[in-house]
Nucleic acid binder design. Structure first.
Length: 537
RNA sequence: GGGCUCGUAGCUCAGCUAGGUAGAGCAAUCGGCUCUUAACCGAUGGGCCGAGGGUUCGAAUCCCUCCGAGCCCGCCA
């Protein structure tokens, strides 16, 4: 069905890239499928998503933004009238004192996070403290929705009509919730909690309603009125979520599978849309969570998580986006922050090559599209410089400075010159490699070139070998191959096992018994440094 | 009690919404001037497609059942 619609579009409208621009491929990438479904509904489109920034925000939430952004981009690519908003649920109460919070925050539990102070004193509020780095992170991914703060919506009275509606229809709302969740609704259920001016907590002990005032009693003993026009209270989650759909006319929303379960909040939202709000519910895009391999399930509440920011520290942004976009949203992702990350970058580079140079087969077209959508900004107009990521892992450990790394790369890969754009990519990737080496890399790939001769024992034989190798290398062209040859040649003439020679040299340079391919490795080092070290053997 | 996803080569997964002789990457093995070491190039090996049944001329692909793994909902968000 979507196919027909797609075929009717002007074929090969424009041809941005040499032969493989994926945007005009018959991509059936899931983002395009969703976009097509939305287009069949016609009209304007609003993608909405959001979060309650109650703690450190993990990569799973990054998936939500990446997913929403992909649909948004796909719509835009098809010329649709589309917009994308991100709702920061800043008016939600702090659920509990999370382990990462000081004890003093015990008294803040129950208050809206927009009125709780920043735990580190670096932001104006608790909510800002946690959402700011997250928004910066998605910004790096090129995701820039309109940011909307829920507490402001309440303060500005945007929800007034809807709150009035649900209060008047409260028995209907209660019936729907009871029906969907299968639970018995409490006696005096009101779809509203008032914010107590006395203690700052929310109270759901509502006594009566007479527009615009909700009369309530607080646990703290306070009794009074809350003005629904002035942000003096809020709807509960299951009611508020569809209220946002109503307020903004949301047509599509990605959400975690927790909301998607039968009887979950999407189900009740749909019923409320149909039976109370009188609108068509948004097209759902349920997505599965991302798990960091070997780290167990992540939970916002434990604080013991790999945050979205952390993920970006070790993963180049387009690569992270790509690694999410390549899978269907409902598929769970095991994100391997260990060696696996090297594979995913390699995969990304391979797809990148296909994108620009062609060679992808039919089945890989969706990957090309994923690559395209993953770009934080416009797709480059030709194949970017690709430095094998694994090579970068070695080089990063040889030189501390960026310039030094560039130097080594130029020498070991014979790259004539590097464009500004490529330099940026390189810089970004190098940063990621360094963070990865610090935090996630397995011990087996780590090494340090000792600036001074390491305190290792060398046998007479090994010393003699080093001495002869030094002589030979002095006249050797400084390339990996030649050095490699020299190492073997020397071993041969002295009747030694190459293995033993390798180990001796590794010990001498990095104080280990094994390491990166030796010839290439030494070629990345300064020649006089190498000769000097051999002298010191 | 209910829902979702997954179970295909050692690992990560394609292929399954157009049923027709099993794919990729990584790993492994072997080669690249008598040279094992984590760049690069090339080659090779490796899978009764979780199990059982059904539909079909034909099923990894569709249907049913079962087994196994993970997660979520039935508090709150």
């Amino acid at each position: 069905m979507h196919r027909r619609g797609r075929r009717s579009k002007a074929p090969n409208r424009d041809k941005p890239y040499n032969g493989q621009g994926a945007s005009r491929l018959d991509s059936m990438h899931w983002a395009d499928v969703i976009a097509n479904t939305l287009l069949e509904r016609g009209g304007k489109h609003l993608i909405s998503t959001g979060i309650t920034p109650s703690g450190y925000i993990h990569v799973g939430s990054l998936r939500e933004s990446i997913t929403a952004n992909a649909v948004y981009k796909a719509l835009k690519d098809k010329g649709a009238d589309a917009d994308f908003i991100y709702l920061v649920d800043s008016y939600d109460p702090l659920r509990k004192r999370y382990p990462f919070l000081p004890e003093s925050f015990e008294k803040e539990v129950g208050k809206p996070i927009c009125y709780i102070p920043c735990p580190d004193g670096c932001h104006d509020t608790y909510a800002e403290h946690f959402i700011t780095p997250f928004l910066e992170a998605i910004g790096e991914l090129g995701i820039r929705p309109r940011i909307i703060w829920t507490h402001k919506l309440y303060e500005e009275g945007k929800f007034t009509e809807i709150v009035d509606l649900v209060l008047r229809e409260r028995s209907k709302v209660a019936d729907i919730l009871a029906d969907v969740t299968g639970r018995k609704m409490p006696e005096g259920f009101w779809p509203f909690s008032a914010e107590c001016p006395e203690c700052g907590m929310f109270s759901d002990r509502i006594v009566s309603y007479d527009f615009p005032y909700v009369h309530f009693k607080c646990k703290c003993g306070y009794e009074g009125d809350a003005d629904i026009r002035k942000g003096q209270g809020k709807m509960p989650w299951r009611v508020e979520w569809p209220a946002k759909w109503k307020l903004f006319s949301v047509t599509c929303e990605p959400f975690g599978k927790d909301h998607a379960a039968a009887g979950g909040s999407y189900d009740s939202g749909v019923r409320l849309c149909n039976e109370v709000y009188g609108m068509e519910p948004p097209h759902p895009v349920p997505y599965e969570f991302i798990q960091f391999k070997g780290k167990g399930q992540m939970h916002k509440s434990t604080g013991n998580v790999v945050t979205g920011t952390d993920a970006l520290l070790i993963t180049p942004p387009p690569v992270l986006a790509f690694s999410v976009l390549r899978y269907n949203p409902e598929r769970h992702i095991d994100y391997d922050p260990g060696m696996g990350i090297l594979d995913i970058v390699d995969e990304f580079d391979k797809v990148e090559t296909f994108y620009f140079n062609g060679g992808a087969d039919e089945k890989e077209k969706d990957l090309l599209r994923a690559y395209e959508i993953a770009q934080p900004s416009a797709v480059r107009n030709k194949l970017p410089l690709q430095v094998p990521y694994r090579h970068l892992v070695s080089v990063a450990q040889i030189s501390d400075s960026f310039d030094g790394v560039v130097e080594v790369l130029k020498r070991s890969m014979s790259i004539p010159e590097i464009s500004g754009e490529d330099m940026e990519v390189l810089r970004q990737r190098l940063e990621c490699v360094r963070h990865w080496l610090n935090a996630f890399a397995p011990e087996s790939v780590l090494f340090t070139v000792s600036p001074e001769r390491p305190d290792v024992e060398m046998s007479d034989e090994e010393r003699a070998y080093a001495s002869e190798l030094r002589k030979r290398l002095a006249d050797t062209e400084w390339t990996g191959d030649r050095i490699h040859d020299a190492i073997y040649e020397t071993a041969k003439t002295r009747g030694l096992q190459p293995k033993a020679c390798f180990q001796a040299l590794y010990r001498l340079f990095i104080d280990r018994r094994s390491g990166p391919r030796l010839g290439f490795f030494l070629s990345t080092l300064d020649k006089s440094f190498v000769l000097k070290r051999l002298d010191e053997a």
